[in-house]
Design a protein around this nucleic acid. Structure first.
Lengths: 207, 207, 207, 207
DNA sequence: AATGAATGAGTTTTCATTCAT
DNA sequence: AATGAATGAAAACTCATTCAT
């Protein structure tokens, strides 16, 4: 009844513990997937007891859902920032760069998202079909506009976006493979990737 | 001991049932991940009883491992086929096309692989570090050669390969998202993707 | 229906296979106990398939019971041979020697028996309460007679028999411990034991 | 992880339940052997639910191992007490008596040990080869000394110790048989055994 | 006789969740 | 807020036994 999650006023401690748990859960879920993660693992990672963790969240699913909710905001921010009034190629390349920086700085978020989509997005299909699709449609329209006005080469805006997503997220989601394949060269993988992707998308879009 | 899996001579039934199980397991593992899948699910999918399934495979892990073993062969075949003596751009575009066809025709294999890498490749790290890396190194050398001889534009062969992998596999691994975002346009997603990717990689590689 | 075990006429092959199975089962049961042994293990040891083994014996219990049945005959033979008309001390010492030889030559039989008694003799209580007790009572009477006629020192015949059983069987049942404790001296353990036990029972019985 | 068994500070309940479980497990393991015992049986005997029992011990083997660990201390105590400076025959007879009392008062411990050795001591071979052998070697030296100084008759100290172990433990390990054979006389079996064994070892050792 | 195939009934263990304090 | 204790439901095997050929 008096669950922390339910009360509207949060104490500082409640907020801190909630964050602590979410951070731990992100780490665990991103590595082992939802079913592969146990509450024990998350509690251990957070330095809490299992029942104490469940004092802050109703159940395992609630933690996961909260993570996914927040995720989408962060996730869509770089695309949000794509400015209709900016210089088209600059805007798109900046978007590529931001996405790649996210892969570098938030790989666990990327993997959490990948895990979820891979399994058929059982928990965030609504968000995909709602906010995400809406935003993509909106930005696709802008890109199509640029294309029609010959500011960039003709390109299918949706598949362009998919290419940006996949190439950048690859460095987070498939990092294990990337690092092994690159061997010692892996140290500079993000810089090398930035150069490569900038080159690739520049050539693609130059009218 | 006297497990079917251990005997050297396989009867027809053994071969059939083994295939049946692997097919069912691929479906289940690709959808729910290793930990998220149960032997019961796989047995159900295969139309067998659980103990009967375990008559053919020693345990859950053995099924998964067998799938991954086979997978790598199929997985590397398109890259294997990249011919040093072919016309460079044609060869690379053909590789893109083959990879995209695999994403279309074997999406479950793609997701099985993605699931495994996402979790840190606990079960196939050896294969990644061994055969896969060896093959990539070999083909990267070829691509670098083409590049140095100006047959294709200068390009980092490793990151080129990553881009090909990620953009094509995206249509299998993130199909849920792709389909939702494209809505009715999803019907032609593979053809549209082929056009888009061919365009993109052509522009990237043209000297 | 046409079970081999049920038919009265046995072919040579049937007899041979039956023996083969019993030998294998003795080995396995003696080492792992009844519950710790599996039909697979026994079949493996015998070089037969599981169903083939069960063609000769109705079930696991039947094999075990048959072993125990036979065992008792062998087991009681040395005591049977104790001759009322022999020289008392000689007779008893000869009995000790025969028992020790059995521990040396048939350790698996000894352990099978020990396992069974340890668990409360669920399967051979009848044999213990019947033939075994009858025989012991009979021989105890003889020993008591010798004792009363001063041919041997006064001794409780039952506890004498228990002492003979325990000291000799110890070398089979606790062989693991005996061998470890004796270390290199273990090689001569049966000869040393013979000397020691002969000495001990001689001193005990000398009037 | 957060298993009760792993935490260092034990609450009262933890200590009590742990004892409760070990007592129950001793009863069950001693009767049915390791493989013949189920966690269900032990939980039932202890009046706990199966998962609750597994809250205190990681698994079946952990319970068994703990029992065996403790056992050895108890088991070796009587031999430990054999005093080099005492009167030799008195010391050895006192040892016989203590061992017989243990067979009477702790028959389940005796059977647990016997079960383990019978199976080849898979779980306590180290303890046998280590502490047990060390102690036996030490005491054998003392006995040999007594023997050489003619304080007791010449005797192989190792085989003497085996005789003491086997004759006394027999009343615990083979109690089923002993009781059936003795019939009504079984009531006084430990007193009769004490008299018999005292007599036997006295005669053996008197110089 | 012999064996590949199949299964029901356990048995061990895991784990999310709840209870009591 | 926090935690030790407890549990039901599931999941991964195991194994004696039967079936079909």
């Amino acid at each position: 009844m008096a669950r922390a999650a339910a009360s509207k006023t949060r104490t500082r401690i409640q907020r801190e513990k909630t964050e602590l748990i979410l951070t731990a859960a992100l780490e665990v879920f991103a590595t082992y997937g939802y079913r592969g993660s146990t509450i024990d693992q998350i509690a251990g990672q957070a330095g809490l007891s299992k029942p104490n963790l469940l004092y802050y969240f109703d159940n395992k699913d609630a933690i996961h859902s909260r993570l996914l909710e927040r995720l989408l905001e962060t996730w869509l921010a770089p695309l949000h920032a794509l400015d209709e009034n900016g210089e088209p190629i600059t805007e798109i390349l900046a978007y590529v760069t931001r996405k790649l920086e996210m892969a570098r700085d938030f790989p666990r978020e990327s993997r959490l998202f990948a895990n979820e989509i891979l399994q058929g997005a059982p928990r965030i299909l609504d968000q995909i079909a709602g906010p995400l699709k809406t935003l993509v449609d909106e930005k696709a329209l802008i890109i199509r506009g640029w294309s029609q006005q010959n500011q960039i080469a003709p390109v299918d805006p949706y598949h362009l976006i998919f290419s940006i997503w996949s190439t950048t997220q690859h460095y987070a989601d498939f990092d294990t493979q990337v690092s092994v394949v690159l061997g010692p060269r892996a140290a500079t993988r993000f810089d090398d990737a930035a150069r490569h992707l900038t080159d690739m998308f520049t050539k693609l879009l130059r009218p």
